[in-house]
């Protein structure tokens, strides 16, 4: 195979894998922001909490980070429900959510970050796992397992949540709750309960996304911030409320960034990806698959 073509294809493939990772970090916001209209900008900080939980279990007990994530899911789910309850009682119930709600999540972001700094310091931390290091070679194609395994886990999570949202009664109520809470009451569903469950789920995804993050790269408490812009860009680009759109957007961004980094250098990547966002929104204001 011709060298530059191989370079191109490898860049595309690693972009796809990177996109899978972006989907995992964005899916929680696709639920909270995309479906519930709750601007949870603290989400990346809780992804990092997930990373550090995986780190602790890995260094102290030698547990696989993905296994840790699965074990930690219920705790993250409950934490999310608790955060929603506080948010609901302090803001949403008083119809006070827009600006004050945003400052609530800003506050939460800083508290979570500072807590992580106090406990773990600002050094980079990483985990050990058999799939970190080796690569799968398929002819000219090189698939680092460090990216492939997270990609597969991420897709599993997206498909699972998508099935839950479209096939279960609670899931369908989650998709509808922001459109008309009173109408949902008329369907015999309690909108507050539905939102609490949805927010719990969005937090639970942070456990998985956190493990994936620390598998892909070493973490320190403030790197979550790097992802805030990208996460919201992916959700808006995909079309709020649409998981499939979000995945397409995540993968597009991953591929565009990977190509840019390969052919023009990594420092161009963010500019190009936000360029894609702006152009798409100019053509399709509701995002790729927004309704």
């Amino acid at each position: 195979m011709d060298g530059s073509l191989g370079l191109l294809l490898n860049a595309v493939v690693s972009g796809l894998l990177l996109g899978g990772f972006y989907a995992a970090v964005s899916i929680g916001v696709a639920i909270s922001f995309g479906m519930l209209d709750i601007v949870n900008i603290a989400h990346p900080a809780f992804i990092l909490l997930g990373s550090y939980v995986a780190y602790l279990a890995n260094t102290l007990l030698g547990i696989d980070p993905l296994l840790t994530a699965v074990i930690a899911l219920p705790a993250f789910y409950l934490l999310g429900m608790a955060v929603y309850q506080v948010y609901y009682l302090s803001f949403e119930r008083r119809q006070d959510q827009s600006l004050r709600g945003l400052s609530f999540f800003f506050g939460l972001l800083f508290i979570a970050e500072v807590t992580l700094v106090l406990i773990f310091g600002v050094d980079y931390r990483l985990v050990q796992a058999p799939y970190i290091g080796p690569s799968l070679h398929l002819g000219w194609l090189e698939l680092p397992l460090r990216l492939l395994v997270p990609f597969l886990v991420s897709m599993l999570m997206v498909v699972g949540l998508q099935l839950f949202l479209t096939r279960s009664f609670t899931g369908r109520a989650i998709e509808a709750v922001a459109q008309d809470p009173l109408a949902l009451r008329l369907m015999a569903a309690d909108p507050t309960r539905i939102k609490r469950v949805a927010f719990g789920l969005s937090f639970a995804t942070a456990a998985i996304a956190g493990a994936i993050l620390i598998i892909i790269q070493p973490v320190e408490p403030s790197i979550g911030r790097e992802y805030i812009g990208r996460i919201f860009a992916i959700c808006v680009l995909g079309g709020l409320g649409s998981f499939s759109g979000m995945v397409i957007a995540a993968v597009t961004l991953g591929v565009v960034e990977s190509l840019t980094a390969t052919f023009f250098g990594p420092s161009w990547a963010p500019a190009v990806s936000f360029g894609v966002l702006l152009v798409t929104l100019a053509v399709r204001p509701s995002g790729i698959l927004g309704r």
Binding site: R172, A176, Q179, D180, A183, L186, M187, A189
Partner: peptide, 19 residues
């Protein structure tokens, strides 16, 4: 009427069966 405007006809009907 208070339908869910961004949900399909079928999705609206299935939401009706939440009870």
């Amino acid at each position: 009427r208070r339908l869910f405007p961004k949900q399909t006809v079928t999705e609206n009907l299935l939401l009706g069966a939440y009870r």
